[in-house]
């Protein structure tokens, strides 16, 4: 037997309305996911996977750079809150090696730009490259301290 539908009260309607707004705001606030290719055949670049972690003292940017020669990695601040990562692969990768046969092109570089979400001191950048993962440490700019009395 079909369950009789409960009549919605004004409170139910308000709750549903709030849930809809929350869902919309979550979608709006989620980290940007731009629908674009992760490659550029014209510049022979692949976009690496990148992450940004903010700790109390520093911002750590990591990038997954498989098949990369560590000597070719270049990290450059492009402005106060952006860094650019560029690296050359050990060998060129053709589209067909990535499982695509209907496109022509080959890739030799990784390239990405990453936004830094808090003020940092771009003059003191430390880097590490372990098992194909690049780690960039950028110290945060210190604000003034408020003394608790």
């Amino acid at each position: 037997m079909q369950e009789r539908r409960r009549r919605r009260t004004i409170l139910d309607l308000i709750r549903e309305y709030i849930e809809d707004i929350e869902a919309l705001s979550e979608e709006f606030m989620e980290p940007s996911f731009v629908e674009r290719p992760s490659w550029n055949a014209r510049t022979c670049c692949l976009e690496p996977l990148c992450s940004v972690f903010v700790t109390p003292d520093e911002v750590i940017v990591t990038a997954d750079l498989p098949n990369t020669n560590p000597d070719t990695i270049e990290i450059s601040p492009t402005d106060a809150d952006t860094i650019e990562i560029r690296a050359e692969m050990k060998r060129k990768i053709r589209f067909d090696e990535l499982g695509i046969t209907h496109r022509k092109g080959e890739f030799q570089f990784f390239h990405c730009q990453t936004n830094i979400p808090v003020p940092v001191n771009m003059n003191i950048i430390k880097t590490e490259f372990k098992r194909g993962i690049l780690e960039v440490h950028i110290p945060r700019k210190k604000g003034y301290k408020i003394k608790v009395e």
Partner: peptide, 20 residues
């Protein structure tokens, strides 16, 4: 290394759904 190269797009889309 080849798997890591090929799996980038799948990882990105998965990360988005895991966030949700």
């Amino acid at each position: 290394e080849e798997i890591r190269l090929k799996a980038r797009d799948m990882m990105k889309r998965t990360e988005r759904e895991l966030g949700r």
